[in-house]
């Protein structure tokens, strides 16, 4: 409970800081007043229409990615299982790009998260099929590389074929992710899918705890493994699909956060779920503050920052599991 309190305070603090990061040099008090009271001043528009949705999306996306990472790792009992690394985010991005480029989103806005979710389901199914029930790290990572590469190549292909001269420049957004200038439209688009995904993944806690004893023991305790797997696939796809549809693929959140928190929750898979959700929210908030404070005029992509933090940890984890892989 101490950890929960600490994480909530951290997320709340970073949320306020995120609201206060940006171009306008107005003071903190004025900014927050303008946020609460709509007086149609430009500052009020900035706070309510630009920064608030951005901070909310950072929380929602961070929680979704952290939770998805923890759930995947609990199910596969492998600390390397992360939606970005194993190609789920890439596939969701492909789905989103297809929905946008086909013009489907103009007729039916929900096509954006739905297409991302659909492709994410495909990717999770493919991963689980390729990695097997007790996937070794090597098969998991190789399957992930293949799916990421295919999704990335198809995304580039679709964008290069677009008649729009700016579509090709979008490739970097879909590969690296950014929250720049997102609006409440994106919040409402993603939120229902994320809430659904959160519900499904959090409900897996007891099952994942049982799974730590091994599949046979878990089934002997009454765990229905097929149902757990279905909930995991749909939950991860809903979370990652919705997050990627509005912000592009943001990698490494689901890798770094559960890794940092695993020790603090006593390696209980169920506790790691909610802790990773809060930790993920804090991490994406912090990264989104950093991209604005470090290079304000450049729209530095979130994925760049996450990779700088996450890739060394990924290498470290591979190094630690090299015996298994040998």
């Amino acid at each position: 409970m101490r950890l929960a309190g600490g994480l909530i305070v951290l997320v709340a603090g970073l949320f306020i800081l995120s609201l206060l990061s940006g171009y306008s040099s107005a003071g903190a008090f004025d900014s927050l007043t303008a946020l609460v009271r709509d007086d149609a001043s430009p500052l009020s528009v900035v706070m309510r229409e630009i920064r608030l949705p951005r901070a909310l999306l950072a929380v929602m996306i961070g929680a979704s990615l952290g939770l998805s990472g923890a759930a995947m790792q609990g199910y596969l009992r492998n600390p390397l299982a992360e939606p970005g690394l194993i190609g789920i985010s890439g596939a969701a991005g492909l789905g989103a790009v297809l929905a946008i480029q086909s013009g489907l989103v103009l007729i039916f806005p929900l096509a954006l998260p739905l297409a991302a979710l659909g492709m994410a389901v495909l990717a999770v199914l493919l991963i689980l099929a390729l990695a097997g029930r007790r996937g070794t790290s090597i098969t998991l990572i190789l399957a992930g590389i293949a799916i990421s590469a295919l999704a990335g190549a198809l995304t580039s292909l679709v964008l290069n074929l677009s008649p729009n001269p700016f579509a090709a420049a979008d490739i970097i957004f879909w590969m690296m992710g950014s929250l720049a200038d997102r609006s409440f439209a994106h919040v409402w688009l993603a939120l229902p899918f994320m809430v659904l995904g959160w519900g499904m993944l959090i409900s897996l806690g007891r099952g994942l705890d049982a799974l730590t004893l091994g599949e046979d023991a878990a089934e002997a305790m009454g765990l229905r493994l097929s149902r757990l797997r279905l909930m995991l696939i749909l939950g991860v796809a809903a979370c990652v699909g919705a997050a990627t549809a509005v912000a592009g693929a943001i990698g490494f959140v689901g890798l770094v956060v559960p890794h940092l928190l695993r020790g603090m929750v006593g390696a209980r898979a169920s506790a790691l779920l909610w802790a990773s959700a809060l930790g993920g929210a804090a991490m994406v908030l912090a990264a989104d503050i950093a991209v604005r404070e470090l290079l304000p005029a450049r729209d530095l992509k979130l994925g760049v920052l996450m990779a700088l933090v996450g890739a060394p940890l990924f290498l470290h984890l591979i190094y630690r599991t090299r015996k298994e892989m040998a």
Partner: peptide, 17 residues
């Protein structure tokens, strides 16, 4: 055609002033 780069032209903040 469509591009995510064009989203800024439809941002609600432009109409809120």
């Amino acid at each position: 055609g469509q591009a995510r780069a064009e989203d800024n032209l439809n941002h609600p903040a432009l109409r809120a002033l």
